[in-house]
Structure formats: C-alpha cells, structure tokens
Simulated assay, not measured.
Amino acid sequence: MKGLRSIPRVLKINKIDGFKLSLLFNNGQSRIIDIEQFFRDSPSGRKELREQILSNQEIFDSVEVMDTTIGWPGIGIYSKDQNGESVFYSYDIDPILLFKAGTVDEDRKIDIGEKIKSLRLQLGLTQEELAKKSGTSKHYISRLENNKSDIEVMTLKKIIEAGFNKKLSLEIK
C-alpha cells in the first residue's frame, strides 16, 4: 500500500453487512472494518455507547458519514458547551483508527498496475518498449505495475491507446 498522503477521511459508506462496514476513504481506497472486532481491539472510549451500537442491527444500521468519519446520530452524550448550554455529541470514531483497522475491500479494488502488467506481458512487451510507445518512462511503468504511483486518466489513455494499441473505455455502475 502506498503511504497516506493526507489524513484519512471517510467519504462514503459503501455497504453494511452485519457489523462490518465497507468505507470509501479520501485516498480512493475502500476498506472493510469489522466494528465488533474494532471495539474489542480498542478498549478505550465509552463502553456503554459501544454496547448500545452493537445491541441490535437497526441501531447499528443508523450509522452515517459525519464530517470526516462515521458516527451514530442517535448515540452519544450530552455535555455543556462554552456557554453552559447542553449539547448532544454523537458517537463517532477517529477515521485514522478506522483506516488502520480496515482491510482492503477486494470487491471494490481497482488494480490498474496489475492490469497494465498483465496486458504488457500478454503482448510480449518490455516495460521499456511500453514506455517508449506511450511517451512515458520505464521507471514510471515499473512504479505503476508495482502500485507505487497513481495514474491520471489521460496518462492511462496514452498507455492503453498508444502503448497497447487498444481502446480505453471506463464503466461506471
């Protein structure tokens, strides 16, 4: 996995499956987090709130994206703000902890590097030959194939159309 370029933020809940969540993070990666396991492995925090979240599926399913992470809008604590007013704070989880606890969601993984390498080998091209045909460098092709570099769509188009003499098409489901 490439290093984090920024602090992980949750953008979307892809799927809820029991007490497991597939979350889309701001680096484009989707990760599966088993919240039951997460709570067992992270004993800090308010135990009664965690138990409430896991007490039934309907409560758990009320999870939503809150600012940069996930939380449960009906689960939390009341506290006083700086003016002494009572304020409700929903229970949420640090997105860095979620990211670190998760595993790659293989159903949502897009491995461009693997696809490029596989097609290059099928066509009998070296990295250097592909780089020359597509106007990139051997070093860049190597970094792509080893998932050490991101790729822009226009560069992907050059590699596919000029390097492989294929047509690039993207499918959005």
Results as ranks from 00 to 15, higher is better:
113 G>E: 04
78 Y>H: 09
102 G>W: 00
80 K>R: 12
107 D>M: 05
98 L>S: 00
83 N>I: 07
68 T>L: 03
62 S>A: 13
89 Y>K: 15
62 S>K: 13
99 F>T: 03
94 D>G: 04
62 S>T: 15
97 L>E: 15
66 M>E: 12
68 T>Y: 08
110 I>K: 10
80 K>D: 12
62 S>M: 08
86 S>H: 11
56 N>K: 10
72 W>M: 05
71 G>C: 03
105 D>L: 01
99 F>M: 09
111 D>P: 02
65 V>T: 10
110 I>Q: 11
110 I>T: 13
68 T>H: 12
99 F>A: 01
112 I>K: 04
90 S>R: 08
100 K>V: 11
60 F>H: 04
56 N>F: 07
85 E>M: 11
99 F>K: 00
93 I>F: 03
82 Q>Y: 11
73 P>I: 05
72 W>F: 00
77 I>F: 08
106 E>V: 14
80 K>V: 09
95 P>A: 03
68 T>I: 11
102 G>N: 05
84 G>R: 00
107 D>N: 15
73 P>Q: 04
107 D>K: 08
106 E>T: 15
86 S>Y: 12
97 L>T: 09
76 G>K: 00
72 W>R: 01
71 G>H: 01
57 Q>D: 14
70 I>T: 02
64 E>L: 10
107 D>E: 15
69 T>R: 00
111 D>L: 06
80 K>S: 11
76 G>F: 01
68 T>S: 09
73 P>T: 01
77 I>A: 09
86 S>V: 14
